[in-house]
Design a protein around this nucleic acid. Structure first.
Length: 357
DNA sequence: TAGGCCATCTGGTCCT
DNA sequence: AGGACCAGATGGCCTA
């Protein structure tokens, strides 16, 4: 909470800090003018910064008391011995003023670097929002976000090349290639949730869902995982293991819910959180740990402006967050705000149309 | 406590 | 000359 607040406020703070640095610099300039010293950085300052930063650092510690009279003093002491004189520009001692300027440069550079990293992170956040699984509370790590994004691109490219939709399992496998087990479980869990949501919606509500944007094909047979069909299968305990081809629950061979796709062609689309499917509800780990019969997950589904609640929705996935990891970590986030994006894949028809244009 | 992830600082390099 | 970019170091936080 604090960190989020901090991150939101930080840019402003940084701007303020930047102003502060600027102000300090100008104040410093005033001080230097008072001392008859030019406030602009001199060549030797740059030299100090570029060739002797470490030296500056070391001298920063102790030379602060040095007065400016010594500034023009050459470093003759180090050459006073038998050692041959060093070539190159003569190094000047770090005066207090130069140390201050060096500090200021460093502060400004730090602020720039922070801003740069924040920009990078916000771009990464935008990327998180457009890859198939998105959660505000359980963010994918940076590296996993990049891997998933790469897989997503490759999967979509594969769809384009083959001209046909992959089945869900294949799609999940493509997406999860190279991902860590927790992330694999998270993504697969998201996809399966999506699938199951659709089932529930359709069966209990008769809701009319279209899946124009789903890249999935109907699986020729209801997929049953080995674990599910195994007598040893314990509901709720099954970790998805896509790499081992052990899936904890059935991909029922249906389309996941499609949704009103955002206008990706819109220039102002910047990876807004996907509106189509939003899972809310008590899916936190602690709740799920309560009991087997308590695994009646309530969630609401936002779909084209429609919000419904569905009780008694059983999940074969265990609880835990993206960071929980572990052999049985199903890495299912609390689902307070999980957004599923795979339905954002371009409609097959659209892809074809695009292909033939 | 170890390991993963992250933010930040820092110095070096390259570019304009 | 200054900024962007990069990579290493460091310390904090969180979870198993």
């Amino acid at each position: 909470m604090l960190s989020r607040l901090f991150s939101e406020v930080l840019p402003d703070v940084q701007r303020l800090a930047g102003d502060w640095v600027e102000d300090n610099e100008s104040e410093e300039c005033k001080a230097k003018e008072d001392d008859h010293e030019p406030c602009h950085l001199e060549d030797d300052d740059l030299d100090d910064a570029q060739e002797g930063s470490s030296r500056a650092e070391s001298e920063m510690a102790g030379d602060d008391d040095e007065d400016d009279e010594a500034e023009e003093e050459e470093c003759g002491d180090e050459n006073s011995g038998d050692k041959p004189k060093k070539r190159g520009p003569k190094k000047r001692k770090m005066t207090a003023a130069r140390v201050e300027r060096s500090k200021m440069r460093r502060l400004k550079a730090n602020a720039r670097e922070r801003t740069r990293m924040h920009d990078l992170n916000s771009a990464l956040d935008n990327l998180r929002k457009v890859v198939p699984c998105y959660s505000k509370t359980q963010k994918l790590s940076k590296i996993e976000t990049l891997r998933l994004a790469k897989n997503y691109i490759l999967a979509l490219g594969e769809i384009l090349r083959n001209g046909k939709r992959p089945d869900v399992v294949t799609y999940v496998q493509m997406l999860c290639k190279g991902l860590s087990q927790p992330t694999t479980n998270l993504v697969a869990g998201c996809l399966q949730l999506n699938t199951r949501n659709f089932l529930t919606e359709q069966c209990t509500d008769g809701a009319r869902f279209h899946m124009p944007s789903s890249p999935f094909s109907v699986h020729p047979y209801p997929y049953r995982c080995s674990r599910l069909s195994s007598p040893h299968y314990q509901p709720g305990s099954g970790a998805l293991n896509l790499r081992g081809h052990s899936y904890s629950s059935g991909y029922e061979g249906v389309y996941p819910p499609g949704a009103t796709s955002p206008d990706y062609s819109s220039p102002d689309y910047e990876g807004q959180p996907s509106p189509p499917v939003c899972l809310n509800g008590g899916l936190s780990g602690k709740q799920q740990e309560s009991s087997e019969t308590d695994r009646n997950y309530h969630y609401s589904m936002h779909y084209s402006g429609l919000t419904t609640s569905r009780p008694s929705h059983s999940l074969p996935f265990g609880p835990s967050g993206a960071r929980s990891g572990g052999a049985h970590s199903e890495n299912i986030p609390p689902f307070h705000d999980v957004h599923l994006h795979h339905d954002r894949a371009p409609p097959y028809e659209d892809l074809n149309a695009f292909f033939h244009n």
